[in-house]
Design a protein around this nucleic acid. Structure first.
Lengths: 207, 207
DNA sequence: TCCAATGCTTAACCGAGTAAAGATTAGCGT
DNA sequence: ACGCTAATCTTTACTCGGTTAAGCATTGGA
């Protein structure tokens, strides 16, 4: 299917990556709001309309990385082993993420990753877009939990994602406080298990 | 204290209300994105910079109503009767809101209110700002639950608000479906109690 | 080798939001 | 009632995000 990429496709991919890398480098250096997109376009050697064909908004230059993970919880649930309960699959996946230092768990202490997260959280226009991604995730997870998408499934989806979000944020806060990922890993696992235990006891037994 | 308002203050208030009312009327008529702020300024008979001194962004013209309710959950918890548990106070307050058709519960079927909500949910820039208001609410509620703001309090705050948000959204969806607030009230109360029961069983007994 | 589609650039534009400079006007002391 | 001061409004012009149109270059296939 996607065997032979084709020159056009490869070039397109390269341009995409160049623009994104250039943008994030400039943003981290000077701050999101202090860098005009014209500067990014110039540095990446493309025109402004071209830049906006690759990334529909300035925010997407930063957030496409996060957007790529969108719907992950729903996929985990949809692709779980037969007989496994959704919450069990999600717990396992989150713990795996902690072990692998997956940035979405907040437990990645590479300076670039920390700086990236700080920028996202501290720039209002970025933070508010991230928040609205979560709502899309919620709808997808609700659908994975129950294709009819009833109120119980939506409630469960909302609670699950809010717990994951807060756990991740907490991990990130500890890293910002100066600790290493290795130091934070154990308490993060404990906190995650407690959070999922809370979900287990609050949610219906079928999930 | 605020006995004598002063002409200046009153005029300021009138201008504020005029701009807001003019803006919302135009938005509901033509759609948020289709109305330039210049039109609003002209219709409200002020200059564009003046408009932006009253409302820092175009979105605020719509959302200041919602922003005014910001931190409500935290206030309910902070001002609860001595000996009352936070979750009990929040449950009561939500049920009171349903009875009083408080728009924040989603159970208000006035056409203008429905149209307003539809606009907020269906306009991306508005929806994403509302989502980020929720995060501020969350921090405030976490602080009201536990001034030290530990992880358990943040988890509880997040879960409580997400449940309230989904309950409200569900009520609104039923009204959009054509039912009246009177018809939806009883199932809304049932759903709310179920939601709060879930919270009670998931969260620590002290809340 | 030629053609058609694709994607690029330039140039001009729209709308949100801000800054500077001057005109008005409320509030207050006399 | 008079005039000063400070707040507030208006005008003008600007920056920046994002879009549109027209034309030019390149790719990949016949």
């Amino acid at each position: 299917m996607t065997e032979q990429a084709g020159l056009r496709e490869r070039k397109r991919q390269r341009t995409h990556d160049t623009i994104s890398a250039t943008a994030i480098a400039l943003f981290l250096e000077r701050g999101f709001d202090a860098v005009p997109v014209a500067d990014i376009a110039a540095a990446a050697e493309v025109s402004k309309p071209t830049l906006f064909k690759y990334f529909p908004t300035k925010e997407d230059l930063v957030l496409h990385r996060i957007a790529d993970h969108s719907g992950e919880a729903a996929r985990v649930v949809a692709g779980r082993a037969a007989g496994e309960r959704p919450l069990a699959a999600l717990r396992r996946h989150f713990l795996d993420g902690l072990r692998d230092r997956d940035p979405v768990t907040g437990l990645n202490d590479h300076p670039q990753v920390l700086a990236y997260h700080r920028m996202v959280f501290e720039t209002p226009s970025l933070a508010s877009r991230v928040a609205s991604y979560t709502e899309a995730d919620e709808a997808a997870l609700a659908h994975a939990l129950d294709p009819r998408g009833g109120l119980p499934a939506r409630l469960a989806a909302g609670q699950i994602l809010v717990v994951q979000r807060i756990l991740a944020r907490d991990n990130w806060r500890r890293l910002i406080g100066g600790r290493t990922a290795a130091q934070v890993h154990r308490p993060a696992v404990t906190a995650a298990n407690r959070g999922f235990d809370q979900l287990e006891s609050g949610l219906a037994a079928s999930w």
